[in-house]
Design a protein around this nucleic acid. Sequence first.
DNA 1: CGTACTAGTCTTTTT
DNA 2: GACTAGTACG
Length: 838
Amino acid sequence: MSIYDSLNDRQKEAVFQTEGPVLILAGAGSGKTRVIIHRIAYLMEQCNVNPYNIMAITFTNKAAGEMRERVNQMVGFGAESIWVSTFHSSCVRILRRYIDRLGFSDHFTIYDSDDSKAVMKEVCKKLKIDTKQVKEKTILNAISAAKNELIGPTEFAMKAISDFSQKRISDAYIEYQDMLKKSNALDFDDLIVKTVELFRSCPDVLEGYQKRFRYIMVDEYQDTNTAQFELIRLLSGGSRNLCVVGDDDQSIYKFRGANIRNILDFEKVFSDAKVIKLEQNYRSTQNILDAANAVIAHNSARKSKALWTDAGEGNPIHFKTFETAKEEAQFIVEDINRRCRNDRQDYGDFAILYRTNAQARLLEESFVLDGTPYEVVGGTNFYARREIKDMLAYLKTIDNGMDDLACRRIINVPRRGIGATTIERVQEYAIAHGMSFYDALLGASGIPGLGRSAAKLDSFVTLIQGFRGKMEYYSLKELMQDIIDMTGYVDELRASEDEEDEDRIENIEELISKITTYEESAEEPTLNGFLEEVALVADIDSLKEDDNHVVLMTLHSAKGLEFKNVYLAGMEDGVFPSYMSITSNDPTDVEEERRLAYVGITRAKEDLTLCYAKMRMIRGETQMNPVSRYVREIPEKLIDGRVPPAGRRVYDDDDDYSDSYSARSSAYGSGSYGSSAYGGGSSAYGGGYEPAGGRNLRQVSYKSLGTSPMQNAPYGGSYSTGSSGSSTSGTGRSAYGFRGLPITRPQRTPDEKKPFIAQNAKPLSSIQGLSKGMPKLQMLDSLSYEVGDRVTHAKFGEGLVKEIVKDPRDYKVTVEFDTAGVRVMYASFARLEKVEES
DNA sequence: CGTACTAGTCTTTTT
DNA sequence: GACTAGTACG
């Protein structure tokens, strides 16, 4: 009896094939991680491979941590010397040691996307690029895409020679890299790129690592980009013992540069590659797998495989239709509670997955109101919060005096009376003398034109130098505490009236405890090491699975996880697949999202519920979208709810919208959803959406204008304004119309510390923030127009009023605009004015 | 120099 | 609706 007996034949084959290039095509839930773990154990126990010679690469710290833990459990002795880590941290580890060969110092800073944006902003300023014409982010995206393809500034420049806008990006690219270098900083992409650069330019370094890593395994291989591929190709160049594990059907990171060809062409690059398919699924019921298989079958470029299980049919897939997204959210919470009561389920057995982070908000509100325990994964990164970035900037300034960005961020935070002009002067001086910003500060008295400010700069420098001196004998925690005390940062927050600042203090406390945890767990804790760890955390890393609460996250974050019961929220064309990919002229965009749907469906072990809301507010605009094509791709016999047919929606007889909908249904109805659409290629979508003028998906939409209608002034007396303040307890009755109720912040007692909110979740206050800019109360007396009148709208121009329906709070007005199509809007939000006939 | 307000932009998805 | 950068004003 050996540990390998529990594997099926295919899995055994994958485990025992230790030499040469191996591609393991592992379908969802096919025990891929098990295979990797067993393979490592097999290498160590049966092949006498020194664990020191084994490398396993993953994409997230969470995956790396789990892998390490499971290997530890299985082989025990020796597992700690296996190199298990993410692409990014592997590269950092290598670069810390050898980056001097590339002219950087080993204390380099890692810039996150905010930092990159700040640098790019400066680049644009310097190059006189109008950021209104070309956004920083656009340039950064182009640079990132180039880096992912290992195209350096020089090569980029040569390609860009004839194209004006490319030339501009090329110039920015060069300048951007220059600035990073001056700050001794690398961005995310650089971590990979510079490592490849290092290996290419220093054969001795590469050879050292090739000798060390004789067996390399790469998890989630379908997510690798060209640079990452090159990295592992180089690393495995000596032994050629490269085993990659992935599923082309789960490739969902194209936007991040993932190159699906890496997996599809693996056998071409490594002609002697052994390919092993794992198709038996140990996770889900047959119904769930059938649904997943049916959906993914609509994609063209894929390696054929079909998941199967011997687990039995299981429950049908539930499909639910709701009037609004709010009802969807309420249903999900109620359904989960019902099943916890009647069905012996635990909260921890449930996950809600959605396409965009913004969808979490409404769900979160329902959970809060209901008191159901939950956790939101992702959204705003904890480390991206202002107060945390401030604290980190102090640490960075202390750690790396060349990090100009960090230094400038905190030089006047908290306020020290150092203004923009002074900073500008110092910066100019630093550039002129080829020194870093901080070095310029050190000699501030010698900088001309600073006047009285020089003294303030001096005391800032003294402060930082003081911290640097204390580092000698302080722990990191003490250092952080000292920074807080000496700068008075928290004192200032404490003095503030703003409720949000309370959360900020809590976040800083949270940071301190993270520092403490780091110091306790790291082998050799250093300031630099902490900053590095912080720079490379992913949202999903912090998810603890043993807590008993419902988990909410994006479909992307859910990859690699599994849950007993899964709800997929927002199954609407325009949400999922997103509006962007539907209107994109690249048909593979919709396929990419179909893979995301496949990922979502296959997360469920026993029960899957698909939710569709007829109406949903996105970016302050209420959209009405048809049911997601991915739902319709699931055979009806697997589903227990009625799915509206293609191009039409089913409404109740008394539904107010049926007219307005039929007015536009022709836009959808022209056959673009027909079965031929997928096989037929790219033009199929265009035909269906184009006729009504490009924005069709949002044709029928409520539009609320402005952030605060109350301030936007004249409603022409047809509204009476309520007097309730913004802190009214929102127990139910809607004062805010259809936008949803404001949520009262639960009173927090000292010992009750945010019971349901994860550290990285948005604070409750941000939900409550919803109510901040809201109109207090809006009652309508009468309208100045009626059906048949011509009206004008601030944004959509003139149109004809087709219908007016009164509901409890407001009038819904359907207008057929001359250019903007048919829209339904609430009268109190749309400032419609009658056009007087002459 | 600091604050308060306003206008503009945005959203897929993330290491 | 939410956030942010920019600007006008004290």
